[in-house]
Write a protein that binds this DNA or RNA. Structure first.
Lengths: 336, 336
DNA sequence: TTGTAAGCGTTATCAT
DNA sequence: ATGATAACGCTTACAA
């Protein structure tokens, strides 16, 4: 690999002058600058980031540790957002995956330390509480799509309550008055928050308990969780007769669409359908297109990087308070 | 940050002895080794990879540049596979995304060079030819899910022809005799290869042209590509009356299922359905579960890392020959 | 405006 | 078995 010294020799100056040019130091005679730039070009010189790193004390590296046990594809957008923001800020994101086999969070954290990462982001694949190993205290840490139960670290999460509140109000505003909510497993944070938002909106519209219904689309059978969307949908259609169905996630909406199709009930025309996720191609593959609250993964990733840079600059990690909630937007199509 | 010297002082030895312990050099008195290990533990010493890198000549870093213009979620598995293999081989994968805005391949390549990556993997999000900038010649480069038209670099691609051949034979083996193939846009490599595999299998079974049909599910309207799966499916059912439908991707299968549902035609019972992708939760959300040829993204990622390590060790990049095809397996469920 | 010397944290070399 | 010393490629501090 070509070094700064080789460039210096080629240009006929001292290596320090080359360093100046590389670092955009203005105090270089234009004539020399041109000579040096030419030499850099000819030799194809690229600065050695590692060497630079040990002398300057910043690495410009941010570690991203992702819990990918359950591979929710859209959560990849968290990483894309993080990467874009890192790029904009002149940082490099080093991504590590937590895969069953061998790697544990502490190990991956050490990896980050060894690369002298300036901060670490821990990302989970669905909104949940996570307790990180103690070692994470040694570096500015930001949690994304998850949070520490003791609020030890700043956290970025989707505003699930707002999402449910918003979509419910949209349904109500369009005149729907008997909404069935096919919610996710109530063990999940998102399910709890959405229920709150859902009921809040209903209350504000004066909808009483006999005019809405909430069901769970997952049932625990022994140690297995099984999806009962179809039965639930049929049940709700028969016994509650809703004018709109709010689904816990887009995949639930797919099954609901199938049930409706089989009953010749037309989405939008005969019944409104709404959902959460805006999961990739799913909402568009359905006919009519599914109106669904998009989880702001990309934005969360961006915000996490911003936050970790802030914390590392201010060198404070503690007293983080409530997780920062990122607003969810409605991806509006034709299903209600 | 704790350095090797501080550990040395704490343990009462020279810093070189600490270096020996850190690098598992056996020529250290056990007594000293214990003292040093204790000091490392107490001080929380972590080696500085950057410093190590400038002295040793290897970085143990592999760059992964991914064309994420079209975000096919499952292609994330390429990265997961690459990351797992890198971890197993003691390498660190540095992932860079190609996002419209500003970053171009050459820039990201430079980023890799600056980190002194030992090799670079270029990954595309669907199987396609790609011409890389000339700069990639400077580092061992492997292409994954894409290939250089001039075979300049080793490439890892899914064996689309084998996939189509295999699934078609499976259909035929189960007795299906009138197969309709709703293929992807014929501009796409995968579509061309699959057509070849499909027809090969049919020929071997002596199926003649009037007993199969191939249709495209995308149509170009002006400068827009529109999905015509529904119309095509209805058309084929009406006019060709197939006993099985082979879909170009799982999302096509979803639409086909809807059409069949609306016509009260039962999948598996009345008609076989097969597909390509094994895309995340889709095949399982359908009822009956979709039997589909899985694209071996994870394995491709693993293989790409293996290959880039091989090439970097043997220092040869040229004369790569045909892309290496990774076998696709049938994810068998209940749809045929 | 430019260059010299020192230093970053590590490994390599060679002596002890 | 251990330790001085040099070296890696760069930046910082300071001098010219």
């Amino acid at each position: 690999m070509v070094t700064i010294k080789q460039v210096a020799q080629r240009a006929g100056v001292s290596f320090k002058t080359v360093s100046r040019v590389v670092n955009n130091d203005p105090t270089v005679k234009p004539e020399n600058r041109d000579k040096i730039l030419a030499a850099i070009e000819e030799l194809g010189y690229q600065p050695n980031i590692a060497a630079r790193m040990i002398r300057k004390k910043n690495s410009d590296i941010i570690g991203f540790i992702s819990d990918e046990i359950s591979t929710t594809p859209s959560s990849v957008d968290i990483i894309r957002g993080a990467q874009d923001m890192a790029w904009e800020k002149g940082k490099t994101l080093m991504v590590f995956n937590l895969n069953q086999k061998d790697a544990n969070p502490a190990q991956l954290f050490d990896e980050c330390t060894q690369h002298r990462a300036e901060g670490v982001i821990y990302g989970a694949m669905y909104h949940q509480p996570v307790s990180l190993p103690k070692s994470f205290e040694k570096l500015p840490t930001v949690m994304v799509n998850c949070f520490d139960p003791g609020q030890k670290y700043p956290a970025i999460v989707p505003d699930d309550e707002q999402a449910a509140y918003y979509v419910t109000r949209q349904l109500l505003a369009k005149g729907y008055r008997r909404i069935a909510f096919l919610n996710l497993n109530p063990d999940i944070i998102a399910a709890q928050l959405r229920l709150a938002g859902f009921e809040q909106a209903l209350t504000e519209y004066g909808i009483t308990e006999d005019n809405y219904i909430v069901k769970t689309i997952e049932q625990v059978k022994g140690d297995k969780v099984i999806d009962v969307t179809r039965d639930m949908t049929l049940d709700v259609l028969d016994n509650f007769k809703p004018d709109a169905i709010l689904c816990g996630k887009d995949l639930v909406a797919v099954r609901v669409y199938f049930v409706l199709e089989s009953l010749k009930i037309k989405v939008a025309e005969d019944i409104g359908v709404a959902s959460f996720d805006n999961w990739d191609a799913i909402p568009d593959i359905l006919v009519p297109g599914l109106s669904t609250m998009s989880l702001p993964y990309y934005e969360m990733g961006r915000r996490a990087v911003q936050k970790v840079i802030e914390t590392s600059e201010h060198k404070r990690n503690t007293q983080s308070g409530e997780p920062e909630k990122i607003t969810c937007l409605l991806a509006s199509r034709e299903s209600f």
